[in-house]
Design a protein around this nucleic acid. Structure first.
Lengths: 247, 247
DNA sequence: CGTGAGCTTGACTTGTTTCAACCAACGTGG
DNA sequence: CCACGTTGGTTGAAACAAGTCAAGCTCACG
């Protein structure tokens, strides 16, 4: 861990760190101008930097934290173990996401955070960030947006799990990830890095790995996606949207 | 609608209105002392009172509100329609619950609120409540708790929908409602008012009405619950807990 | 008295899980 | 460098949980 000044740009609900290669504003080709216009620089704050290798537990459910960690690079899961081996993934954390907005109000982390890929994290002091939030209204707004988005995402998951078929859930997951990565400039030509294993998808979508495998094969056979070597290409966006929404 | 001074007592995450019969502190027999000790009186605020009869839409998804409404009496749902007739109930709102803590940060209401029974609501001005929150730290804490609880409940729903069987989901729903009502003194001898129709349960638990009917019959036959005339008695709490948690 | 909302039950269908076998890729230690 | 276990993915057959369709029932209400 090393402390360093944080040159973050807060864009919509993403907290993008200008000093991380994958976040460099220049890297976000399409959104670069918008980011520059709306970005909030929170340079005065120091952030603890931490690098975690793939498949490690970063924070354990119930652990106490007095920092607000943000994912700068890599993918992680926020998941809740059930004790009998089962576990539900509540969200996939991508670059720019806070681990949990709930950490502003409670030091206890409600879910286990586990890295999928190698992950780079920067953690702000909760108190310092709180103070900064109080004085900078645009930063406060950015935080509100992040919070509302986190909330609406979990709502959406509950809706999907309650009402939608396996096919719809997986199609929607792919589309969501695509859109989130797209917003921060991490896609190109309908193609994205896709480090998820089938067991991640299954634990997010409430399905068995076997069934996930069948459905992905199905998508491939239908020609809507191309997936190999941790890279996913949406070859027929219209068809995928159709699979995602309509029964 | 009528404006009146609000003599609310904020207890844990419940916002109990002393002037509503069902909330009268005296009514909360078991928790009366605790409430008195921890209650935060927010008398200076005026609240708009509103009474809605059963099965009405109180607020429609996407509607704009600049108040924070609280359920004083009766039950309601927070639900998201899917457009094709399906809809997912995200939470049941009981006396003392805010319609949505998200209303602090966004005027747009993210779900449709519909009354189950006749409902009495009091709505605070968002701005006034915000100001009061800033000056009274115990009120702020109460709000944080309400927010975190709302959040943890929706997380729990997603977990249940993703990982648990129909039987488990329904058993857990009954236990949750029991505990929530118990906390505000609205149960006696393992018995609670139970105004839910099977279609409410089905839309919350992501099941068909038919299947809910079968499972409830099953619970009755096993002798764990008694349910008739909108009244539910848990006759075998241990067995119900067992059904709720263990596969 | 008729109509609609809510509940129950039976027979049948379907989506998803379970179990099992097998394969490919990969890292590791002898 | 090979033998080996581990992780991740695919496929088939059978079992099962939940959905669908349909009929009939009660009850409240205008």
């Amino acid at each position: 861990m090393a402390a360093a000044a944080a040159n973050f740009h807060v864009f919509n609900s993403e907290w993008l760190c200008a000093t991380c290669p994958s976040h460099d504003v220049a890297f976000c080709r399409d959104v670069a101008q918008v980011v520059k216009a709306h970005a909030v620089n929170i340079e005065p704050l120091k952030a603890l930097e931490r690098i975690v290798s793939a498949k490690q537990i970063i924070f354990r459910q119930g652990e106490s934290l007095n920092t607000i960690p943000i994912i700068c690079k890599g993918w992680a899961t926020s998941e809740v173990p059930l004790g009998d081996g089962r576990s539900q993934i509540l969200s996939f954390l991508l670059p720019g996401n806070m681990i949990s907005t709930a950490l502003f109000f409670d030091t206890t982390i409600p879910s286990t955070i586990r890295s999928i890929t190698d992950v780079q994290i920067r953690a702000f002091s909760r108190n310092q960030l709180k103070q900064l939030l109080a004085t900078r209204s645009n930063l406060f707004d950015a935080f509100s947006r992040a919070w509302l988005q986190e909330r609406s995402r979990i709502d959406q998951l509950a809706i999907d799990l309650g009402q939608r078929s396996a096919e719809e859930r997986i199609a929607r997951l792919i589309l969501n990830l695509f859109e989130r990565l797209n917003r921060i400039g991490l896609t190109r030509d309908n193609t994205l890095e896709f480090p998820l294993r089938q067991h991640h998808i299954s634990r997010y979508a409430g399905l068995t790995v076997v069934h996930v495998s069948r459905i992905l094969s199905d998508f491939r056979n239908k020609g809507v996606i191309l997936l190999s070597e941790r890279t996913l290409t949406i070859t027929d966006l219209t068809a995928l949207r159709h699979l995602a929404a309509i029964r």
